[in-house]
Design a protein around this nucleic acid. Structure first.
Lengths: 179, 179
DNA sequence: GATCGCTATGTGCAAAGTCATATACTACCC
DNA sequence: GGGTAGTATATGACTTTGCACATAGCGATC
């Protein structure tokens, strides 16, 4: 999966560091990966013949190893794009915490948890909305970038609405219990 | 993270198989885990003193190893519940595919992709809505279960709305190009 | 009495991902 | 001259996860 993303980012020749930078800028809202993993994956892709690399001098640091996508690499990218949509495995740490929070029998804690969660989710959403404001949607790449960003925004707003609904329900429940 | 979920499910003594069954029924919408991983994790939790186990005969199969949460295990659970909300790493395979689909220059393909995606997301949402219809929301556990389910439903509807928005935009874009 | 499906517990192996660490050059500020 | 920040490439150790496989009892059905 990371393979496809790296091949996609290698539309132009780039060093591992550049790829990671492009990754942080353009793809961090759809996949998380750290530098060491990117380097290792690029190494594997080279062994598999999807990319080639060449060491080049750098103007502002040590030597760079610049990767280029091969025709075979482009084919692999297109094949990945032609696959079925890959649904993510469910992995919601905060939901799991909330799920068992009945165990603690503490509505105040649940409320504080939701408030904290809402703040974090709102921050994420704001970052996406900032990016949206800067996107050029005319060319193919920008158009598709914007499509993906929109999902983050739709989903982010839905999560905030859920936080509010949940906080309301927890408060009502607390009030009902005291009564 | 799975640690907390297993400790939470062990409110009553259960075998690994039972835990996995409870997992599939009650927690699969918030975390994915297969049997082998559950067995391994229970083994580690025992080594760490969070659970104990005892082999017991079964009426309908081979012997069962029944796990019980220790006081230390309960403390570990409460500590986990008191932690900050854990945000998931971004890992959207289908979004990554869509992100690079400009490379293929094929609006028809993008449209088919979104249609397929929408169908899958709608199925997931339906399953959550079916579960919601069967939930008892009065007791602590049911209340918190329902809260988590609601997020899945909010987010699921937002994703469907996004699919429709995206399909509309892709169609418009296709029409504009032909004109 | 053979086979199927469910109950039940595990091992082996590989891929994916996380975190810490080592190295080293350049530019800039103090 | 010294410290910090950014550029740049990696390796080592570890955990988590996924997938396949091995084993075996029990009940029902054919």
């Amino acid at each position: 999966m990371l393979d496809g993303i790296l091949l996609g980012l290698l539309r132009e020749p780039r060093s591992g560091y550049d790829v990671a930078t492009a990754f942080r800028r353009g793809a961090r809202h759809l996949w998380a990966a750290d530098l060491s993993q990117i380097y290792r994956t690029l190494g594997r892709l080279e062994k598999e013949g999807h990319v080639t690399s060449r060491v080049e001098p750098s103007s502002k640091g040590p030597e760079r190893r610049v990767y280029r996508r091969t025709p075979q690499g482009r084919q692999a990218l297109l094949a990945w794009l032609a696959e079925e949509p890959e649904l993510p495995p469910e992995r919601f740490g905060y939901l799991a915490q909330l799920f068992f929070m009945g165990e603690a029998r503490d509505n105040g804690r649940t409320l504080a948890f939701l408030k904290d969660l809402k703040r974090r989710l709102a921050e994420r959403l704001e970052r996406l909305e900032e990016i949206e404001a800067t996107i050029e949607t005319e060319d193919d790449h920008g158009f598709h970038t914007h499509l993906t960003l929109r999902l983050g925004i739709h989903a982010g707003r839905a999560r905030l609405a859920w936080c509010e609904e949940s906080m309301r329900r927890v408060r009502q429940r607390g009030a009902r219990r005291k009564a």
